[in-house]
Design a protein around this nucleic acid. Structure first.
Lengths: 186, 186
DNA sequence: ATATTTGTAGACTGATTAGTCAATCATTAT
DNA sequence: ATAATGATTGACTAATCAGTCTACAAATAT
């Protein structure tokens, strides 16, 4: 399954660089070093390729978010770990993160089933509900909370990507902006 | 200049509904009720049409943001007016707002000159700098502040668009989320 | 009135596109 | 060994695309 991976990897890169509109399948195949037909062997249509790419990438991010977030710790610490993980992943996988955003604000997003969207969001919403029940997080609609947190993270990430920061400086920004967010929601 | 407006209006709608990749100029012309050649009379290329559409729409939003934000009022009140204006505009011009987001997270955004980006952001950054000087807003990089505020607004707007709220409920959400943001940055 | 520019039309084109197909090649199962 | 299955190829096609061109109409200037 080496070629399939190569196609996905190349497609991701080209979509981010040139956009969906200006990335022909022929270019993807060529740059991936496979024949035209091979692409369509693995993906029935260009659209399917795009959708698979999104689901896969989004899943990878979601999985990474919860690494080392052991439930034994305090709610704040777990939340901070998830927060930090997310920004770290975004910084280390800029193309992937940008692709997720590009996809999410495109008409393609409407093709993702509500089930899949809910499935992706569920762990986060559950976590926030726990936080409210424990009277740590302010009582408000979890959907609103979730959107607010996501937007905040997107913002921080945009800022971190806009300039070159040293690792130390970067850590400082992440810590401080976490505190802003945490104070806002608790 | 009726037809030019019609082309822009139709293009906006179609780009949001189908995306850049799946909106041929022929479809825009047809739905706008003009001939194919007319579109290219007003816009040299499809790309130019897209760029003009963005600049125009972004300018309209920026102008609307400052309506009734008289500098005589307190900083908080001015900021709240701008905040409320923005969300109101976004809610009343959902297609336009969505287009701005779609464009901003697409490779087309890279074609906007730094001058134009700075020009659009300048009034906002100046305002924030004043707020910091007046010791009202927390001292931090204005770029970070700006990004954070923008993201917050995008989030609230997304939430407001996700469900149908009554006008009263909507106002309540806007007020409360403003308070969250204001507390966060002051 | 006449000339000039500007707006509008839509048929047309050359290039490009997504996707197909028939034919090999590689791998695994029998 | 032989059969069967899946992977891979690249030439091919039918459709579509952005953009051109010629012609004419309307408005404006001289």
């Amino acid at each position: 399954m080496d070629k399939k991976e190569e196609i996905l990897k190349t497609a991701l890169k080209l979509f981010v660089e040139f956009g969906f509109h200006a990335t022909p399948t022929s270019k993807i195949a060529k740059e991936a070093g496979v024949a035209n037909g091979t692409l369509f062997h693995y993906f029935k249509t260009k659209e399917e390729l795009i959708l698979v790419l999104y689901s896969q990438t989004k899943t990878r991010l979601t999985e990474y978010m919860y690494t080392n977030a052991s439930k034994d710790e305090s709610l704040e610490l777990v939340f901070k770990t998830i927060y930090t993980n997310t920004i770290e992943w975004a910084q280390e996988n800029k193309t992937e993160f940008y692709f997720i955003q590009q996809f999410s604000t495109s008409p393609f997003y409407g093709l993702i089933s509500p089930e899949e969207i809910n499935k992706q969001a569920k762990p986060h919403l559950d976590f926030l509900r726990d936080g409210i029940k424990a009277a740590v997080i302010k009582p408000m609609p979890v959907d609103l909370l979730y959107t607010l947190i996501n937007s905040h993270i997107a913002g921080i990430n945009q800022y971190l990507s806009s300039q070159e920061f040293s690792t130390a400086k970067q850590k400082k920004i992440i810590n401080e902006s976490f505190q802003l967010l945490w104070d806002m929601i608790t």
